[in-house]
Structure formats: C-alpha cells, structure tokens
Amino acid sequence: MEKSREYVIVAEDLWMTLEGKQVLKGVDLRVESGEALVILGRSGAGKSVLLQCIIGLMTPDSGRIIVDGMEVTAFTTEKEWKKLWMKVGFLFQGGALFDSMTLSENIAFPILKHTGITEKRALDCTEELLSLVGLEGEGKKLPSELSGGMQKRASLARTLALGPSIVLYDEPTSGLDPVTSDSISRLIKDLNRQGGNTSIIVTHDIRLAFQIADHIAMLEDGKVIMAGTPEEFRRSEMEHVSRFIYGSEQPVAGREG
C-alpha cells in the first residue's frame, strides 16, 4: 500500500481474455506523477486493452489497478467511476467526437454537464481550448467537415475540458501525416511539461515515443517485455525491441557496427 502512494497509476498482475484469446498475461505497470509513459508494441499486443482497463471501459479477469489512490478494480458504484472519470481524460484513437454537435458544442458538453457554469462562460472556455489545440475559429464546424488531424486535436480539446490531471492517449498520431503527427506530439509534450499532467500514451509511432516519453514500456503478446528510459530502449539489444525500433530489415549486429 505504501508503494502505491508513490505512483499515480499502478497496474498489478493484470490478466484478461478477450474472445477466447489471452490478451493480457500478468501485466505490471507503474507511472509516477507528472510522468509521460509510452506503451509501445505491435498491433494486437494488448496496449489499447490495457489502457481501456485503466479507464474502466474494459474489466480485467484478475489483477489490480490503482489510479490516483483509487482501486479501480474494486469499484462497484457509478459514483466511484464518475470520480475517476472527472480526474482522468481519455483520447480515443478515432477521436469519437459527437457527430451531431459542432466542435464548440462537443467541447462545451462536459463543461456544461458537470460544472454548472453558464453557456456563455462554457463557450469562452471552449474558445480557449480550441486555441490551445490550434483550432481557433473552427468551433462552428461539424466533425465531418474536419480532417483526421483536426478531429484528433478537437477531441484532445474535449478530453482536456474538465481539466484532468491524468490523460490517457490511445494512438494519438495513427493515420496522420508526419507534420500533423509532430504538432500533436508537441501538444502532448507541452501539456505534460507545462500542465504537469501524468500521461500514458499508447502508440506504434517510434518518433512520437522518443519525442515525449519519460519512460517506455514495451508490450509483446500481452506481457511487458521491457520497461525503461528512451535511452535504455535505444541501447537495448533485445531482439524484439531493436526490431520494433529499427525495423526488421536491420539486425542488431548491423546496427552496432
């Protein structure tokens, strides 16, 4: 218990089966306050499932998850979940913006539902958040009128609307061009450094991982096969790790030479 107080997010011995397949096999994870942890891994390694277990969209078969001192895996009431969701933001891979609402309405929605402030003040907050993600003046547009990158940024603004201290990002740069991807990674880094947020970022994107990570954990076949700093990952001679980072074309020996 003493140990869990040092970390904002603790996952212990998580096991989970999905459609007959074991997707998490005893995953252990610890994230310190203000840290940006990047979870790397191939498709189907269990990264997104792990993230969804932490936020409560999926329930592990066994194991323990503690977020900000709350034991998520022992939650029984909606009130407990609500307390968690007010503190933790989640950026969905596809953005998951409400397509019947404009961008401003999307972002103002959680503010109006939870804070009791006036609509005018909520719209002011919306403008601030839109300019934070570089979408000033776009508030009246519908999600369908935006590009993938703009949708991701708008979704990030909505995720930040309630001022979460922890933000979980599910593939924040997937399907984006390198320039947009860079702007999103800069945004995540700024939020992490200046806002003091604790973040977990699930990605395949090695560039993003090395740009923003304080620590990296690599998931392979439902297990954490390596955890360490970006520098430790660069130097790693584990075959799975080096192949993932440098590509299958370049063997470890070649890289060393």
């Binding site: 969905f92 959680p110 939870h114």
Partner: peptide, 21 residues
C-alpha cells in the same frame, strides 16, 4: 441507427469517460 452508429464509432464510450451515463 443513431445509437448503433454512436456505439460503433465509440461515441458511447466517450460519453462514459466524460462521466455522463
């Protein structure tokens, strides 16, 4: 159709994590 599409595009999950039932 509306709720089904919202489920498929994860808008219903988005409501959950925004603490709205």
């Amino acid at each position: 159709a509306e709720l089904g599409s919202m489920l498929v595009t994860r808008q219903i999950d988005a409501l959950k994590v925004l603490a709205i039932n």
